[in-house]
Design a protein around this nucleic acid. Structure first.
Lengths: 195, 195, 195, 195
DNA sequence: CAATAACCGAGACGGTACGTCACGTCTTAGC
DNA sequence: GCTAAGACGTGACGTACCGTCTCGGTTATTG
């Protein structure tokens, strides 16, 4: 019988890997980011600390790997009927992601680390689930010829207000995503503003 | 003779307080937020650790007290000639604050903590240098009768794009604050958009 | 009230110190030298690991401090009537020390370490309970004018045979200390050999 | 064809065995006993750790096998002309072995282990290069009829002083082997003392 | 000449102790 | 009653080896 990994030596335990990623998720929810500890992850996962160090070098890396897929899924909304509905649905998803999702909690924690750790900054920027998802939605809702500003700036204008609202600690329930969507379209595609 | 603070015993040392706040600032610049440590502050300030614990309960509190005044100053811009200039100047100040200022580094660090520590969240929201300064500039540049959306949402639309741009790790130099200002005015005060 | 140590700060806990030294002794007897662990000492003593590191830098240092006083006591025999009795009594004490005493077990363990750790070598040589006690007994039993060889070599001739016998793993019960004493005197003080 | 080891399957690799023993010797000299590690041996020998565990159960066993033959050779001196020369030559060899020889370093390390590990004690006693070599020299230098004490005690008297001198950390250069030999003969064979 | 059996290297696994660091608390002496 | 000094217990850090356990491959002997 031939194993798939092709290299000599005992192959990496997929079970251990899954247990670790799962444990990180659980702990983040249970005890909060500050109290997530490599020791704690190891114990919760039933895995030795050394096994974690073998495959990840920082807490942030594990967290990112544990949440990246979920993050993309949660921000990947189904196509809607018309730009306003599209944008509104996306802003709803973004708000939910940032406030009520485990993956979102991980994202916010990583974003915090990124502010004083350039390694995490790179890591996060290379993943960038918000930027990517916003760009996707945007290209679907507003074609190039109606967009009055560069895509990258349009992304910031789309997600920025919600991003600031939530991260600065304002009440997410007080946001009106439909109005926000209208305002965004007024900025980014004035010709569509009357739709 | 009667002391001013009214209580018996040795009064609080103003010298120690200043030394601590100064040490926090220095350390933040020198070693970065991650390595700012209560032990380190105490040593740099020539103060005992107990003295710090007597007056502050968390690292975040000290950091906030050490940076709040600077933050307000740096975001308090001189009045400009016309809304566009006003908004542009403010966005410049905001970008500089978030990227090149010690107080801004402290703010970003605290914002990171706030994502997983509700006590810091409250603390930061009660200070809110960005929200306050944006509101001030806004009321100066765009009177109520030309503002097409609620003030609180206007604040988010004003600072949100820049906020997201910087905190998500994008290159600050690639921002065009003048265009950003124009876009904001198009959103918030369509009647002024032709100015 | 004035404390004795004269320095500022919390004074060293004599209770912790005693508990540590006691725990080392206990552990050495219970689990053997190889299994004596700093972690184990700390737990047995009800003391934090850090407290141990604060005052000692190696396991050997603790062990030496814990056993040095006992070692000297056990090798300090009461004066006897005549050289032969004196030497015999000393060799008995030495054998008991090396085979049946906790302090002796510590000494043998340290001697082992000293064979491949020069720091321990120095430490042990500076304490040297066997050399010192042998010299004392020797000067009491055989005055200078009857001693046919240098004191330092006499010490080696006195303790060497027993030392080798025990450390090389030979059966201590098969030693005849009285005959050993006679042989030593024949070597060191031929003029007394007929006593 | 019939293999020598009699069993089916691939025979033990003599090359691996030699590489391991050689690596142990090298490491002992290079990094000192304390830092000799099974992992290190395996890497230095270019051998897997499992291969070592297959054939030896402890570090001590490998060390003994690696040094036993050398030890015997170094302590097996050429016959000399007369008892004094014989004994002196042997003590010289013994001193050199214990202080300047790789095999001697291994022996001292094992002796240290033997003090707190009875398995090593047995192992070492069953090899006993010092006891054996001393007995050989002794029987050559002093026939039974001139020996005033049992052979086993004579062995201790012969090697004990040197053994203690070296292992207790005293300066080997300060030993006078010729005088030591004379003293030994005075003890063990008084009738020859005038030779 | 295949099948079998025991070896070999590589390397991941769960453990355990290491020595260090910062934490928050405490107990002194001094002002 | 505040201060500096500094020891205390606690607990996570990242590292090093331990002994065990798969893996893919490699020899020899045996049927």
């Amino acid at each position: 019988m031939v194993s798939e990994h092709g290299k000599a030596g005992r192959p990496r335990s997929e079970q251990a890997r899954a247990a670790i990623l799962h444990a990180v998720d659980d702990l983040l929810v249970d005890v909060g980011y500050g109290a997530v500890t490599l020791k704690g992850i190891a114990e919760r996962a039933g895995v030795s600390r050394q096994t974690i160090y073998r495959w990840w070098s920082t807490k942030a890396e594990i967290l990112l790997e544990a949440s990246a897929i979920d993050a993309r899924q949660e921000l990947d909304i189904a196509p809607q009927d018309g730009p306003v509905a599209e944008i509104t649905a996306y802003l709803d998803a973004l708000r939910t992601f940032l406030t009520n999702s485990d993956a979102g909690a991980a994202y916010r924690a990583l974003l915090g680390e990124a502010q004083h750790d350039s390694a995490v900054r790179e890591l996060l920027l290379s993943s960038d689930p918000i930027g990517d998802s916003a760009a996707t939605v945007l290209s679907r809702a507003l074609p190039d010829d109606v967009l009055a500003l560069p895509r990258s700036r349009a992304v910031s204008s789309l997600v920025g207000p919600t991003f600031f609202w939530v991260l600065s600690g304002r009440d997410p329930a007080a946001m009106n995503t439909h109005d926000l969507a209208l305002e965004f379209i007024r900025t980014a595609a004035p010709s569509h503003a009357s739709d």
